[in-house]
Amino acid sequence: MTDIAINRRRFLQVASAVAAVSSALSAVPSVAGILTADNKMNALEQQVFQKMLDISLPTKGSSLVDPASLPVIPTIEQALLAGMAPHIRQGLRGGIVYFNDGPKAQYGKTFVQLSDAKAAEFVDAWTRSEAVPHRALAVGLKKLTVLAYWAIPNTWAPLGYDGPVTEKMGVKSLGNTPEPRD
């Protein structure tokens, strides 16, 4: 268990905020916020997100694009973390430490030290947990990671999804609607 003292209510908010903020979907460089030194990922956060990416999208043998060939982790940092409010970002740091330490009691290892199979087992167990912060962190960190992957247009072709259509199809704008006469 982490020795970082986090008030339970505050922790719940921060842990759950990961889920909500990750729904921002703003995970592509073109919408990158202002990445300050305070918002950058530290080494542990990079490892946690990388592990989450490895276990969430094991694409070998599938039709999906290998996430190792895509800038998923930079997308999380540059788009999502860059736009995060300072107090949420600070709390997230504690939340990630707490999450990484989560498997210690059962497995004797941190999340990033687990095998991929055990790490996936741990994440699924936390999504079923009675503890709200466990559910919120497991779902939130996973959601954030996969969203950053799917926000990258290169990932769509294997799904058969063709993306934006208006320019491709030459659809003309109708422009502003004329003002009513009455």
């Binding site: 921002a24 979907l25 703003s26 919408v31 926000a151 247009p153 934006p164 259509v165 208006t166």
Partner: peptide, 9 residues
């Protein structure tokens, strides 16, 4: 952009 990820941002 017709990309929800960008529009959200």
């Amino acid at each position: 952009t017709e990309m929800l990820a960008v529009a959200m941002g």
